[in-house]
């Protein structure tokens, strides 16, 4: 990859949430991946986010995007990505867990890959800030702060 090409690209993670749901986040927004972490149920919580885990002395929510968008429980995955997000650049960093069906895939994305969010994926609209084509698929880039705010 030439210097000019590198300058036009950004690194990102493609996250597979299961049920055919894939989205991307910035490379700096995925902190770690945990395999089979101990999860704790919390009562009276939304069905898509009823679990927490302990990470570096913090209690983090663990969210199932496939359950949120498809109303299906992603019950088999033992992979949890630890995401980082900020509500505002002046606010502290927050951490949150995401149920993943596969290990995140690190990719390079260039401006030339930008595309519109397809009608078939309009359910991403409240969370997507943009979209790009990767391996012939439209991949939305999602805003983690919105996802973990609970307000869509």
């Amino acid at each position: 990859m030439s210097e000019e090409e590198v300058a036009k690209t950004n690194r990102a993670w493609v996250l597979d949430f299961g049920s055919g749901l894939r989205a991307a986040v910035g490379h700096h927004e995925m902190w770690q991946v945990l395999l089979s972490p101990k999860l704790f149920d919390v009562p009276c919580t939304p069905s898509y986010c009823g679990e927490v885990l302990i990470f570096q002395d913090r209690i983090l929510p663990v969210l199932s995007v496939s359950h949120l968008l498809e109303r299906e429980k992603n019950g088999t995955s033992q992979i949890v990505g630890i995401a980082i997000y900020q509500d505002d650049p002046a606010h502290p960093i927050h951490y949150g867990g995401l149920h993943l069906a596969e290990m995140p895939q690190s990719i390079y994305v260039s401006d030339e890959q930008a595309c519109d969010l397809p009608d078939s994926q309009e359910f991403w609209e409240p969370l997507a800030v943009s979209c790009f084509t990767h391996e012939s698929l439209a991949i939305p880039i999602i805003e983690l702060a919105s996802l973990f705010s609970g307000n869509w």
Partner: peptide, 22 residues
């Protein structure tokens, strides 16, 4: 309790790691 876990009828306001439980 994280924002994304809050529901209107929940009485739970906070979480605490205590004796290997949440």
């Amino acid at each position: 309790l994280p924002d994304v876990m809050q529901t209107q009828n929940s009485p739970i306001r906070q979480l605490l790691f205590y004796q290997e439980q949440v």
